[in-house]
């Protein structure tokens, strides 16, 4: 028992590792800001293209979304980080990670938005168009606000996944939270930094997870 406390909950080691982990946390948050921010916007455009009546726009978009859903994000990341340099495309780890996760997550956000867009009755389109609103005006003022509101729980749920996903950046040595924790572990031969990292993720995400559950309950009743 004391062994467990020593190996996993060693306060001394945690205290020593904390500054390093905080640096990592900053990097994680930066990554989240980029991927979530751009993903929310990119996903919306993908979803609009994927629900477009124009076939030449819809089909390639759906293909891209399905491709991204079928590829594990880590594979995409390794491909971009280790594979692209062979083609002469070199980029810093942060960029590689951001590009890979952005591709992956725009597709996931797009799926969420798409469900929201398709949940709206066509009467909303017609009413808006009949009052002379243009297509973009209809989207901005009538369709998108309702679609987003309808899928808010799923957007939140996907955003949680993005935050968790950023931990994969440690594989390509981007100094985010998990990378720093794992460094501290290998230096101290002690797992407490990993446990501390887990605790930080929990503090960050547990409230969100609760909120998603609450949302789902409310929707279903």
């Amino acid at each position: 028992m004391s062994n467990i406390a020593d190996m996993f909950f060693n306060l001394d080691i945690m205290r020593q590792a904390l500054p390093l982990l905080m640096q990592g946390l900053v990097m994680t948050l930066k990554l989240c800001a980029v991927v979530i921010g751009l993903g929310l916007i990119g996903g919306l455009f993908l979803a609009l293209a994927a629900t477009s009546p124009r076939r030449w726009l819809r089909w390639p978009t759906m293909a891209l979304i399905d491709l991204m859903r079928a590829l594990p994000p880590l594979v995409l990341l390794i491909f971009i980080y280790s594979g692209m340099p062979f083609a002469g495309v070199q980029m810093p780890a942060f960029t590689a990670v951001a590009v890979a996760f952005l591709l992956n997550n725009s597709a996931y956000y797009a799926e969420v938005y798409r469900a929201g867009l398709q949940s709206l009755p066509s009467g909303q389109w017609e009413a808006a168009r009949a009052t002379g609103l243009s297509m973009p005006q209809t989207l901005v003022h009538v369709i998108i606000p309702q679609a987003v509101r309808n899928v808010l729980p799923d957007l939140l749920s996907n955003t949680i996944e993005v935050v968790k996903l950023t931990s994969l950046a440690s594989v390509v040595s981007l100094a985010e939270l998990l990378y720093q924790a794992n460094m501290a572990r290998s230096v101290t031969y002690n797992s407490s930094p990993l446990v501390l990292a887990a605790a930080i993720y929990l503090v960050l995400l547990w409230p969100c997870v609760r909120l998603v559950s609450r949302f789902q309950r409310k929707l279903s009743i």
């Binding site: 009755p121 009467g123 909303q124 017609e126 009413a127 009052t131």
Partner: peptide, 9 residues
């Protein structure tokens, strides 16, 4: 135009 289903926002 006025629709059967109202279609208010």
């Amino acid at each position: 135009m006025v629709f059967q289903g109202f279609h208010l926002y």
